[in-house]
């Protein structure tokens, strides 16, 4: 199949970017979207041009590294799918595909389709951990956790931090990401101990990173590759309200 691509090219963080048009011919429809970009890059390198830079790692849909706006939708037309798990068979022959980087005030474009998502890392560092003494691994049965609770915590922990929620949100809000981390830990006995200070710190850091407010449009859940529920955001609000109300100083 043949495809026309309009790809966002930007030299560096401070440069103004623009869409460049490329045409690829004789593509295999079963190729993944990233393999298609690899093909383009091989051709660009052969012609002595700069390849298109983009983030990727596992290409199995679990690492959260890849991610781009494909025809104006985070990770492309398929629901709950990462960019690497999207294949050319989802498009039609001779289609024109516009590819842009994930963006928000907190996600700055480093180059082409590559985005600085370190704001997520700083949110995690501000409270997404459990302060326990390390030592010998405790017996797995020391703290009983029901199967339902473990599954429920894992539903939140499944967030791969790709940033599709922020890119999709009209406000560039990181509420779903932050809420998923807060909920994941608030559910488990090990995480309960520090839940109040965790939520206060993480929300504070989230605001510092110039993410927007959550308007509860729920678009983030629709486009999330992992289908993280917006009820995590309600849970974050609950945890935050409680922590703020009972704060001693």
């Amino acid at each position: 199949m043949d495809l026309h691509l309009k790809i966002w090219r930007q030299k560096d963080r401070n440069a103004a970017g623009k869409l460049e048009t490329y045409t690829l011919t004789d593509l295999n429809p079963h190729m993944s979207f990233l393999e298609m970009l690899d093909t383009l890059n091989e051709q660009l390198i052969t012609h002595g041009e700069e390849p298109v830079e983009f983030d990727h790692d596992c290409r199995e849909g679990i690492c959260g590294q890849c991610g781009m706006m494909i025809n104006g939708i985070a990770h492309g037309p398929l629901k709950h799918t990462t960019t690497c798990q999207l294949h050319l068979r989802s498009f039609k022959d001779k289609d024109t595909i516009t590819i842009e980087p994930f963006r928000s005030a907190a996600f700055l474009v480093k180059k082409d389709l590559k985005v600085d998502r370190s704001a997520f890392d700083r949110i995690i560092s501000s409270g997404g951990f459990i302060s326990i003494n390390t030592g010998q691994a405790p017996d797995a049965t020391v703290i009983p956790i029901s199967h339902e609770l473990a599954e429920s915590a894992f539903d939140s922990a499944a967030c791969i931090g790709c940033g599709a929620c922020v890119a999709t949100c009209k406000n560039g809000s990181a509420a779903l990401f932050t809420a998923a981390k807060i909920t994941h830990m608030a559910l488990l006995p090990q995480g309960k101990e520090e839940r109040s200070q965790r939520v206060l710190h993480m929300v504070k850091q989230m605001d510092k990173e110039s993410f927007g407010h959550c308007s509860n449009t729920e678009a983030c859940e629709v486009e999330c590759p992992q289908g993280i529920s917006v009820l995590n955001i309600a849970r974050m609000n609950f945890e935050y309200n409680k922590a703020l109300f009972f704060k001693k100083k």
Binding site: K6, W8, L19, M69, N71, G72, I73, A74, T98, E100, F102, R103, S104, A105, A106, F107, A167, T168, C169, K170, N171, G172, S173, S210, F211, G212, H213, S215, N216, T217, E218, A219, C220, V222, E223
Partner: peptide, 22 residues
């Protein structure tokens, strides 16, 4: 604040995931 923190895309079909009134 939301206007400032949200992104603008050349091709934008994000509207498919939410209601216009939201």
């Amino acid at each position: 604040k939301n206007r400032k923190s949200g992104a603008v895309y050349e091709s934008d079909r994000r509207g498919r995931a939410s209601k216009w009134y939201s």
